[in-house]
Amino acid sequence: MNKIFPSAEAAVADIPDGATLMIGGFGLCGIPEDLIAATVALGVRNLHTISNNMGIDHVGMGLMLEAGMVASHIGSYVGENKLLEEMVLGGRLDLTLVPQGTLAERIRAGGAGIPAFFTPAGAGTIVAEGKEVREFRGRPYVLEAGLTADFALVKAWRGDRMGNLVYRKTARNFNPVMATAARCTIAEVEEIVEPGMLDPDAIITPGIYVHRVVQWTGYEKHIERRTLRGGTK
């Protein structure tokens, strides 16, 4: 078994127009930057993206947006992207905002074969409009559907040719849960190691969920807000 692909370009080459893509990361932390760049270079259109954020102008998924390849997006926070707002207000992109925990659980449910679940988040707000609301133990809960995707593009710290993955610090975020919810999960890893080198007790994403592994090419990791002790520089 060898899931290693020679490049990000090779790994994303069969993403078709109109595909649904989950893309890992929280802000710019833990985003699969090589896979995003390769998808932009591929020039596919009409993509349906699912990601907590939408990058920022000129970085991360902001590049996909600028390339005009995104038709719809499901996320929880897009406050850092001016172009997205323009596109949504201009009717060129269909945006669905979802509470962050509901987004994470919808993806988890999708990967775990749970078609829908009830959550208290959003009860009594516009998020609940048009959805079934049911009372349990005297409190209202909103019915939310599981999410799956054609492809998941995720970023990990270390991985092996079997697809086992570990993550680093808060760069984990949505990556492991998205890895479970796609028909084809592509992992971009900082370091490819031999099977057996990852502590089996510490593996976060077991290889069964991962179909392709590519070596990160060592771009610069972006920091969105560089805050320092004794003042921000």
Partner: peptide, 19 residues
């Protein structure tokens, strides 16, 4: 707390995306 200058880590941020 926030890191000292030079020890910030792009993989370590809070929910406000601050290092």
């Amino acid at each position: 707390p926030y890191p000292l200058a030079g020890s910030e880590d792009a993989d370590l941020v809070n929910a406000g995306k601050e290092t």
